[in-house]
Design a protein around this nucleic acid. Structure first.
Lengths: 230, 230
DNA sequence: GTCTATAGTGGGATAGAC
DNA sequence: GTCTATCCCACTATAGAC
């Protein structure tokens, strides 16, 4: 969900209001984790935060807007984790796997209820959609992370592919997120297996792109991506 | 959305009940088309059908279950179109492209409407999800269609891949549906471009799977699919 | 600008009588 | 199988305290 997040909140807010806002967010996240999204009521959130229902709505104009807070938290944690990974790992596979693993680990506590409000992000016209204009900053930030995965690594790619690769890796991340949302296995074991097996495969495929036999396919893929982009 | 549908209803139902059921479905489809999914209420459906709210719930245990009626309509049209295509085309690429093109063409009139309730189907716990247990019969039926694409074609595949291929093609179909839902271009032009370019690429890749150099990758892909399946 | 209290409305879903 | 009555809760509205 990292990349579904909106951009960081503006800086200027009164300390008092900020405190109340944080209390509401904290209460909401606790309740979401405890009872899931649907069975968490705005009344419950307000009560747990020690504010009135009206006040909760003063800060978050709908229950869905509280979801933004969740996005922001996961994104922040992922960004921090990514810094460690990228400072540590030098191989392409290591960096990619590190990033994706970190995301799965960070998002895990929220898995159960994440599915419940996933639909907010899935609605094509929603600003929470990963492909929306509103999400562009977050999407660009996430894509930049994957560009770093490439820049700091040992990977050599066919040049035509190199330019498209960060976006393709971001798409892969979206695929993992999608899989994760639907993954009902304990501790999202299947998603972890997916990442563990897909990363070496992608690594292998990427390294093959400079073979003569594969060049034609690479050109096709790049052509497809470019033809299909809005 | 074809493949999100449930299987045809069981045969045995009282004529009385069946009539009521049909009235509710007809009213629901009218209202969905007129005002969209969200702004159609169960009260409105019940009233338009001339039954009580409670009675509507007797037949459809949730609003989402009413959407199945829409799925069934599209699915029926696609199945019929598929028969023509599969009787006519003999190449793998021709059969695959025919099936996907037919789906895009059939679904086109519903594009706007589909976007509105797509989020409901995207929810993992929803019975409308293509991966739900409720959708299994429809999913199996759709997969069988893609198995036919292979069976009647000239394509030779690496044996290990052959067994997994129908399901992979179904996944590809889901990818096209996903892309289609988000496609805001006029007449879903981008989706058509996607299909037109992806099919030859898939065809080329499939034919490469028997090359020695590619065998390792094929095994990896098959291993990945098997490790990751529920 | 922040917050409370209270009184609504609308609509999804259910219980239980008939 | 059908209804009526009811619950629950997201969400709105508003009047006013600090």
């Amino acid at each position: 969900m990292t990349t579904l997040s909106t951009v960081p909140e503006p800086a200027s807010r009164s300390p008092k209001g900020e405190q109340t806002r944080q209390a509401i967010v904290a209460a909401a996240l606790d309740l979401f984790r405890e009872r899931g999204y649907d069975r968490t009521t705005m009344r419950g959130v307000a009560e747990a935060a020690g504010v009135s229902l009206g006040n909760a709505y003063y800060y978050f104009s709908s229950k869905e807007h509280l979801v933004q807070a969740f996005y922001d938290r996961v994104q922040e944690e992922h960004r921090a984790a990514a810094e460690d990974v990228l400072a540590r790992e030098t191989t392409f596979a290591g960096r990619l796997q590190g990033l994706l693993d970190a995301w799965v680990r960070i998002a895990q506590p929220y898995h159960e209820f994440a599915g419940k409000f996933f639909k907010n992000a899935a609605e094509p016209t929603s600003p929470l959609s990963p492909f929306s204009e509103d999400s562009r900053p977050a999407r660009d930030a996430s894509t930049a992370l994957f560009r770093e995965v490439l820049d700091g690594s040992d990977l050599k790619l066919a040049p035509a592919l190199r330019a498209e690769m960060p976006e393709l890796l971001w798409l892969m991340h979206m695929g993992v997120v999608l899989f994760w949302v639907y993954d009902g296995s304990p501790d999202q074991r299947r998603t972890r297996a997916l990442v563990a097996q897909a990363v070496p495969l992608v690594d292998k495929l990427a390294r093959m792109t400079r073979l003569p036999l594969v060049r034609g396919v690479v050109d096709d893929v790049v052509g497809l991506v470019r033809a299909v982009r809005p």
